[in-house]
Design a protein around this nucleic acid. Structure first.
Lengths: 158, 158
DNA sequence: GTTTGTCTACTCGGATAGTATATGTCCGAGTTTAGCGGG
DNA sequence: CCCGCTAAACTCGGACATATACTATCCGAGTAGACAAAC
């Protein structure tokens, strides 16, 4: 099971957008990261529908964050791209076969489903603790404090 | 992103095997859970290669756990079926595009990759805390204490 | 009665098709901006 | 000089092909037990 590559792309894009003053076209975001523009656009549309970013059309249009970067968690982005529903789906096989459990006895969820749900909860909580602002800060620190400035400069230039 | 259905199947099968005295054929495990026998066999082969179960051929052959159920974690099973490598794969797009980071500056992992790795660690830890024995105990409790006995009886019959 | 050999039935194991999801691409609908003409 | 109109260029949005991985299945290799015959 592998996560979509788009998740990495849009996370980088969100960090970039957090440094932008105005709207940034998908074309330009793709150029900055050297990734397929059309496919990135598809993922940005999903983010737009999820309410993480907003789009403006026409000349000088593009994408922008709907909230301050400190209020957008990595979980918001991952959940939007990955879609609804968790990793694990219980098919209730305990209700099948020669020893099928009677439906009236299945008042609680299968213990296997509970175990997987707990793990997903741990995953979600870990991702919800990190925001786009945290990512930007760390990226800047890793680069020695020049990365974000370079991005802002590149965005200003045309 | 969805986990394979086989994970649910083999987890149930491991609980069943924890109640067996001798080897249980894949055919019989499939019959008990009402699932495609050939496809289940494929997943059991993977578990066998991972060392979670061992197989014996010939008449009265079948599968059995290699260790006591209390020493087999859910993570062992999930990791075996899901294969090596985590959910997220970093493609190092920071090294691409007009603002590519110099390779010598990339001494540490990208902060995005770190965030995802932390979340995967939380997921893994949650799964490693639960064993097959825990699952069996909970299933028995949910059924009012009759499920495991029924399974043992059904395995003995025939 | 014991032993040995064969033989059969049963098991796993990997190689082989079909289907859903992820990846990648394209062109059309809509909007904003700029330019132009008129007042 | 200001206002309104027109037109063009640029944007997003959803519809359309391709690649990868999950789902499902089959048949062959190998082994353990059962049976029969010989000693």
């Amino acid at each position: 099971m592998k996560l979509s590559n788009g998740i990495e792309w849009v996370l980088h894009c969100c960090v970039t957008l957090s440094q932008a003053q105005g709207p940034v076209p998908a074309q330009r975001l793709a150029e900055l990261h050297d990734i397929p523009p059309a496919y990135l656009a598809k993922h940005l549309q999903v983010l737009s529908r999820a309410g993480v970013v907003h789009s403006s059309q026409g000349q000088d249009g593009g994408y922008g964050l709907t909230r301050p970067p400190g209020e957008i968690s990595v979980l918001d982005v991952v959940a939007a791209i990955d879609g609804p529903g968790g990793f694990f789906r219980c098919t209730e096989i305990r209700k099948r076969g020669p020893l099928a459990a009677a439906p009236e006895r299945c008042t609680t969820r299968c213990s296997i489903a509970r175990a997987m749900a707990d793990a997903e909860l741990a995953w979600n909580e870990a991702l919800s603790k990190i925001t786009i602002a945290d990512l930007a800060e760390n990226i800047d620190a890793d680069s020695g404090g020049t990365a974000l400035g370079d991005v802002r400069e590149w965005l200003e230039a045309r």
